[in-house]
C-alpha cells in the first residue's frame, strides 16, 4: 500500500532522513519507534505532502504521492496529531465533521452532525460533548475527539502521531485499545509513531525502528523482543548505556 524508497530530507545542514526504505502492507498496523529528533514525524509529513522530501520516492497504491491530485489523495487519510490539533474556534462536532462539511466529501449539515455524534460515541464520548468547545475538555477527551475526527470520513489510511503523549497510563491504555479496535474494525492501514512501548505492544502488527535517518530494524511485533539488534534492544529496555548516544 505505502512504498517508501530512498527517502531523504534535510533542514539546512541537519539531515533528518538519510535514505528511508519502508513498505507498509494494506490493512496492517505499523508502528515506527525511535528517539526524539530521529525524523519520525517528518516521515509522516513527507507521506502526507506537508513536507517535501529532497530525494526518494513515496508510492501509495503504486501512485507517486507527489503527483497525486491533492483532494482525492488526502481524502484517503485520517490523522491524529500529537497535541490533538483541534480547532478551538469551533465546537467539537464541527471539528469531527470538518471534512464532511466542505470539499468533495461534503454532506448536509444534519447528516454531518449525526455522523460526528456517532463517531464520538465510537470513541466513548456522549452526545453532550458535541456542543462543547475543545478548551472545555480534558486532555484524554481531546485525544478521543481527535481520534473521532481522524476516522470521521472512513479513511483507508490512518496516521497516529504520539497518540498517548501527555496522558496518564490508564488513559493511554484506553486510547491504545481504542486505536487497535478501530483499525481492525475499519480494516484500515495504520502508521503510528511513538516512544511508548506499551503503545507498540498494543497497536502494532509490525514495528520499524528509525535511527539516524534510516530504518535500523523492521519486523513483526512478536519478533521484536527476541531481536538481537543492540540499538533496538537498548530502545526497548530504555537502558542509558548502549550504542545510542544519550546526553546526561
Amino acid at each position: 500500500m505505502i512504498d517508501i524508497t530512498g527517502l531523504h530530507k534535510s533542514f539546512g545542514s541537519n539531515a533528518v532522513l538519510r535514505g528511508v526504505d519502508l513498505n507498509v502492507e494494506t490493512g496492517t498496523s505499523t508502528v515506527i519507534i525511535g528517539g526524539s529528533g530521529t525524523g519520525k514525524s517528518v516521515l509522516l509529513k513527507c507521506i502526507l505532502g506537508l513536507v517535501s522530501p529532497d530525494k526518494g520516492q513515496i508510492l501509495l497504491d503504486a501512485e507517486d504521492v507527489t503527483r497525486a491530485e491533492r483532494d482525492p489523495f488526502l481524502a484517503k487519510f485520517g490523522m491524529l496529531f500529537q497535541g490533538g490539533a483541534l480547532f478551538d474556534s469551533m465546537p467539537v462536532w464541527q471539528n469531527v465533521a470538518f471534512r464532511l462539511l466542505r470539499g468533495s466529501l461534503r454532506k448536509p449539515v444534519e447528516e454531518a452532525r449525526e455522523i460526528a455524534v456517532a463517531k464520538l460515541a465510537r470513541v466513548g464520548l456522549g452526545p453532550e460533548v458535541a456542543g462543547k468547545f475543545p478548551a472545555e475538555l480534558s486532555g484524554g477527551m481531546q485525544k478521543r475527539v481527535s481520534l473521532a475526527r481522524a476516522i470521521a470520513a472512513d479513511p483507508q489510511v490512518i496516521f497516529f502521531d504520539e497518540p498517548t503523549t501527555g496522558l496518564d497510563p490508564i488513559m493511554a491504555g484506553v486510547i491504545n485499545d481504542l486505536i487497535r479496535e478501530i483499525v481492525v474494525e475499519m480494516g484500515a492501514t495504520a502508521m503510528t509513531i511513538t516512544h511508548d512501548m506499551s503503545s507498540v505492544r498494543a497497536i502494532a502488527d509490525r514495528v520499524a525502528m528509525l535511527h539516524r535517518g534510516k530504518i535500523r530494524w523492521e519486523g513483526p511485533v512478536a519478533e521484536m523482543d527476541a531481536a538481537s539488534d543492540p540499538y533496538l534492544r537498548q530502545f526497548i529496555t530504555g537502558a542509558a548505556e548502549g550504542p545510542i548516544e544519550t546526553l546526561r
Binding site: L50, R70, D71, L74, F81, A85, F87, R149
Partner: peptide, 16 residues
C-alpha cells in the same frame, strides 16, 4: 497559534 499547535497541518490533512 494554529501553526504552533499543528492546526494548520490538520487543515491540510483535512483537504483544506
Amino acid at each position: 497559534t494554529m501553526k504552533v499547535t499543528e492546526q494548520i497541518d490538520a487543515l491540510v490533512t483535512l483537504s483544506t
